[in-house]
């Protein structure tokens, strides 16, 4: 159930780029917290309960670690709280540490969503037209990885069956790995040339060969792209005009609450929650269909009785 991932790859790429660039480079606590919450909401829709637990166990210690270490390296700021080894630990450095942690974790969550949504086939579809040769190298390499994995398992079994390297010592394991790797290299070199011959025989060299793709640019893609561009231009306008300017050093500034900057914050909030809303809408639809199906089913059961 990934409604957002069925969007056109180009729209998805533009969306992820605009969120990642703003989340990485705009220094403003409200923008950073919005990006974090948007990332949490979206990631929550994509992962299972078990993955969520392991994510929490990873990101919360990371948050604490980054916030604590910043005051140790940074002694800027005007409000010293106490002195440690002759260096001032300032209020500003602690606050900046918390916000940098929020920013880092927000960006990591969005990168995780990117990995789950922008699979390698979409990535290749986007870049295959602009740079066909690097794209063919990449897609061939991606196809070879599972093949090499299977082959290396076979080679390992064969080597073990012949009685090589059965001890558990570090050097034996290293030599065993190297031997398997070397066999793999020899095998894949021959295989590569055969693949290339097969590709040529099927007309890869011809100028007007076509490639398969399954993506269509639909009305909903256009709407999402238009909304995305409108919101991001508005946010950049706000950032460029200084309405959401914020600095931690030498003194923490106040957050601007004029009508314009509030509008910029809400625009950003809408931007980061778009995928969450699309997923929610899809779930409601799905539950609605399911209840309709089960209602139909019970009706039919009654008739049969």
């Amino acid at each position: 159930m990934k409604a957002f991932s069925s969007m056109h790859p180009f729209v998805l790429m533009i969306y992820f780029l605009s969120v990642l660039i703003t989340a990485m480079f705009i220094n403003n606590p409200i923008i950073q917290f919005s990006a974090l919450f948007g990332g949490i909401a979206f990631c929550g829709m994509l992962t299972t309960a078990k993955q969520k637990l392991s994510d929490i166990a990873f990101y919360i210690p990371l948050l604490i670690l980054i916030s604590i270490t910043n005051p140790l390296f940074s002694h800027n700021g005007e409000t010293p709280l106490f002195f440690m080894n002759g260096n001032a630990v300032t209020l500003e450095a602690i606050v900046y540490g918390v916000f940098i942690a929020v920013m880092v974790i927000g960006v990591m969550l969005w990168c995780k969503c990117y990995s789950l949504i922008m699979t390698s086939d979409k990535f290749l579809y986007l870049f295959g037209r602009v740079l066909p040769k690097p794209a063919i190298v990449m897609s061939t390499a991606l196809r070879y990885i599972p093949m090499l994995k299977r082959q290396s398992a076979k080679v390992k079994k064969a080597q073990k069956a012949m009685g090589f390297y059965t001890s558990e010592s570090y050097f034996d394991r290293l030599r065993f790995s190297l031997r398997v790797y070397s066999v793999l290299i020899g095998w894949s070199m021959e295989n590569a040339v055969e693949t290339a011959k097969a590709m040529n025989a099927r007309g890869f060299k011809l100028k007007n060969h076509t490639s398969y793709s399954n993506y269509k640019f639909k009305t909903v893609d256009f709407l999402l792209l238009a909304l995305n561009i409108a919101l991001i231009i508005f946010v950049f306008w706000g950032v460029g005009s200084g309405a959401v300017a914020f600095s931690y050093y030498p003194q923490i500034t106040h957050i601007d609450t004029s009508a314009f900057s509030l509008a910029v914050y809400s625009a950003y909030l809408i931007l980061v929650f778009i995928p969450f809303f699309i997923e929610i809408q899809e779930r409601i639809k799905w539950n609605c269909y399911r209840s309709k199906i089960s209602a139909l089913h019970t009706q039919r059961m009654k008739k049969e009785q």
Binding site: L148, L174, S177, Y181, L184, S188, N191, V193, A196, K205
Partner: peptide, 25 residues
């Protein structure tokens, strides 16, 4: 040419898979 492209692809795949083969060390 095609052969060079595929061989480079294999080298990419081999160095990526190297991380998996050398999982034990």
């Amino acid at each position: 040419n095609t052969t060079r492209l595929v061989i480079i692809a294999v080298m990419v795949a081999l160095s990526a898979i190297g991380r998996l083969v050398f999982y034990y060390v």
